[in-house]
Design a protein around this nucleic acid. Structure first.
Lengths: 331, 331
DNA sequence: CTGTTAGCGCGTTCAT
DNA sequence: ATGAACGCGCTAACAG
């Protein structure tokens, strides 16, 4: 069913039908005709051809979203948020995950041919490479949880605050020898988390001890190795930069026959289903990842409309989710 | 840059340019003009406007994919596979996740307005409701890991075989009192897994004992509760229908101070990152979920081209991933 | 308040 | 082997 069918059934011109169906210039159409057109449209189960509309208006009403991996709760919930906002604004979401070793850029492929009006980008890549690639697409873009030098718009989580909340919680339980499983050195979020850890320690009058920090990266094995290297320092609590590193640490603690949390407390950043699957269930700091996707999309809509947009501040954590992996310090 | 720009630069008509750029009727264009057009296109960095092309050909070259949840490795890897195949066939992927309580159907929203040429559907909903909803979209569709009565095309994993492989492994380790944490009764996959469990027992001459089966559903709490109810039966091994139920069971075993696998072995179906995060790392049967997404998309491409397609057989498991949660029976 | 008209960029006859 | 012309379905000037 197309516009002309609706128009014929209602006995009007297709331009009139177009106007009322778009809900534009409400005042300039007689209420009676308006009702007739709406009724015809409903009767015929009319839906505008989005391709024709897009061709005419030069706006596809779809955004592309690029994520490095799908099986990561941070990205998957961000996508859910993005989809929510997109739907609210009448946009669809084209998805792509970054394949390593692609000859042409994902961004190029997605943005070419007027398929998308904008791009949501969550990349783990080197930022230096990213900027020119994205600029080449000629569509506005918003970065998810990454900072990018230049005028790029970003929506980021306040990882620093999250680390502080985690340390505060541990300190409130009496811990003072708190180890940190850090992320990739030089990474934006890893740096923020380390900074938050240090800031919180300082605030509580605890001296920073570099021997209590080990790089764990983003795998369970990395977390395990880091934890093993930290054991001789006898920390009473551990802050994992991610859930995987915290989980890896817990394996080592179990192997060492240490009781969690009786002998040592564990806390991780970000909350996800897997936190409830660990033994004991992991205390975490929940982050508004879905809201991040939502806000990024709102921002992109504004950019697409050439509105003036203000930078959005880092999103504060949703708060502590206390489970069984943290408890009072022994002694 | 549009077709007319390329044509002008090459000094030919736009129809000629269109022909060579689509790579159609190779024989009927002089090699020299052909080269000129290709060169011009490259020089201008030309990409066809997909909206115009779609309008003209009445095919958007995009598929919609609907999943109930994104933060589930089964679906997220299926999406990755689907994207792979889609890209290979020149298609894009529009994503939607099922929101509960939506007024209009996701399928309708996605399929309306010629936005997609077909639908990939992974639904947890009642199958009875699903069929008419999907038929109303008037686009071909393929179901992911679900059977649907009627002529619908489905790509499913062989869950029954997976359960058999798991039981075979446990039996080979000497286990005979094998408990099963089952899925939702009546569910397609839950039924298959239970059937595989029973078939394998029978094959090994082990009598089926209904007291060793408990419904765990699809949460860690459910798995924990089921395991707790099973403990009095003193199983030496447990087969979880999913990773979450296996994880829930492991929590209960830890609380009961049982050693895994010394006192009791645990195995789960499906493999994912989380299996490596548990303590001890979980032995699983790996399933080809990515391949499932790929095949489903291949099938959809064929359907879109009105090709005759044959039903695809259930996808056999990728095999056993032996980790530390299974071991020889005590004794 | 409503109808007429002219494209958006492309693919596709039909001519030549 | 190539060009001219039409229309996919819709929106947006401009008329009236």
């Amino acid at each position: 069913m197309k516009l002309i069918d609706v128009a014929q059934l209602a006995g009007v011109d297709i331009s009139t039908a177009s106007r009322v169906l778009r809900g534009e210039s409400m005042q300039r159409i007689r209420e009676e005709t308006r009702g007739r057109i709406l009724a015809s449209a409903r009767q015929l189960n009319y839906a505008p051809n989005e391709l024709a509309r897009g061709l005419r208006t030069a706006r596809s009403k779809t955004f592309g979203i690029v994520v490095p991996q799908l099986d990561n709760p941070v990205f998957s919930t961000a996508i859910e948020g993005a989809e929510l906002s997109a739907r609210r604004h009448g946009y669809s979401l084209l998805i792509a995950h970054r394949q390593s070793g692609a000859t042409d850029s994902v961004y190029r492929r997605l943005a070419h041919g007027n398929r998308v009006d904008g791009l949501l980008v969550a990349s783990l890549d080197d930022q230096a490479l990213l900027k020119p690639e994205l600029d080449a697409t000629n569509v506005p873009f918003v970065l998810l949880n990454r900072k990018l030098a230049g005028a790029a718009h970003c929506v980021v989580l306040d990882s620093r605050a999250a680390a502080e909340i985690a340390v505060d919680h541990l300190v409130s339980l009496g811990h003072r020898r708190i180890a940190h499983l850090a992320g990739r050195p030089g990474g934006f979020n890893a740096g923020e988390r380390l900074a938050g850890y240090r800031a919180a320690l300082r605030r509580h009058g605890i001296r920073f001890d570099a021997r209590l920090v080990a790089v764990a990266g983003y795998t369970a094995e990395g977390g395990a190795a880091a934890m093993r290297s930290l054991l001789p320092q006898r920390p009473t609590a551990v802050l994992g930069a991610t859930l995987v590193s915290a989980a890896g640490a817990m394996m080592v603690l179990h192997e060492a026959r240490l009781q969690i949390p009786a002998d040592i407390s564990v806390i991780g950043l970000h909350d996800a289903l897997v936190a409830t699957m660990l033994y004991p269930p992991l205390t975490t700091v929940r982050m508004p990842t879905e809201r991040m996707g939502e806000l990024a999309t709102d921002l992109l809509v504004a950019l697409t409309g050439h509105q003036r947009v203000k930078a959005v501040a880092p999103l504060p954590p949703d708060g502590l989710v206390i489970r069984a992996s943290t408890g009072p310090v022994a002694g």
